[in-house]
């Protein structure tokens, strides 16, 4: 069941370079939410009309120091909506619609989750890391890329909780200089594809690159997609991506209900 709740900001912590970690508490949503699902977050009285989609970053228990029923959103200031959000202090009211979307499929017990994150695309991985551990997966291997070091929020957390952490920045300010696909391709080289599963979240060009690596090689790969959304629960039909339909023709699939996580081979873009 999708719930529409008014909550108060518990914390809205600046992590540098326009990245923020927002915390609020909502017991019922927290109890039903899965990693990879998202919320539509509204800012009443702000003049922003539509709610904005954000993945769940932290579920209860994801972050050690956060209270029982709290939820976290990791976000980056992109435009007006996120600008307003970043200005909200403790106690400010938000409307939160969720849980929305399908979420990730947690890999099987012997399968290593391989996370690929581009910048703020790292948002859903803390909650997923915990779910993978609970399912008995080996520690995740993470490939974390961004424009520069300042856009690798929660890097320390991932360092503590992943089996391996490979970073890449376009300006070389952290990790390897270049795109995250560089270290990823080296890691995949000669490895048995039945032992791992790729999971990627980030900007479209990165997702395209991962799809182009995974699909021809027949690798298991889940992609968490983004689209402009008006409603978030399936009625505006605004959030579509082209997918391969059953009859071979291109279909438009709503990512707010059939996604945001889709198998890479389904996409027709």
């Amino acid at each position: 069941m999708i719930l529409d709740k008014t909550v108060n900001v518990v914390a809205n912590e600046a992590l540098g370079n326009g990245n923020f970690l927002l915390t609020f508490a909502e017991e019922t949503i927290a109890g039903e939410m899965l990693p990879g699902q998202f919320f539509m977050v509204g800012m009443p009285g702000s003049g922003i009309l539509l709610r904005r989609p954000f993945s769940v970053c932290g579920l209860p228990g994801t972050f050690d120091d956060s209270p029982g029923d709290s939820l976290q959103v990791l976000y980056k200031v992109m435009g007006q909506g996120t600008q307003v959000l970043s200005g909200l202090g403790t106690g400010a009211a938000l409307t939160v619609l969720g849980p929305l979307g399908n979420g990730f499929t947690v890999p099987g017990p012997e399968v290593t989750p391989v996370f690929v994150a581009g910048g703020i695309g790292s948002a859903p991985y803390p909650a997923l890391t915990r779910a993978c551990a609970a399912a008995g997966c080996p520690d995740p291997v993470m490939f974390y890329g961004a424009r520069s070091a300042a856009d690798l929020p929660l890097l320390d957390w991932f360092d503590d909780h992943c089996g391996e952490l490979h970073t890449a920045t376009e300006d070389g300010s952290a990790g390897e200089q270049g795109l995250v696909t560089g270290p990823l391709l080296r890691w995949l080289e000669g490895r048995d594809p039945t032992t791992y599963e790729l999971i990627a979240c980030g900007p479209d060009p990165m997702l395209h690159a991962i799809r182009n690596i995974a699909v021809p090689a027949g690798l298991r790969c889940q992609l968490s997609l983004e689209a402009h959304m008006a409603c978030g629960f399936g009625v505006c039909i605004g959030c579509v991506v082209p997918t391969h339909g059953e009859d071979g023709a291109v279909d438009y699939t709503r990512i707010c209900v059939d996604g945001p996580v889709l198998p890479a081979e389904k996409l027709a873009w």
Partner: peptide, 11 residues
């Protein structure tokens, strides 16, 4: 009907 290609909505 299948509709238009995305992006389809913007505030």
């Amino acid at each position: 009907r299948k509709g238009n290609p995305p992006a389809r909505v913007v505030e």
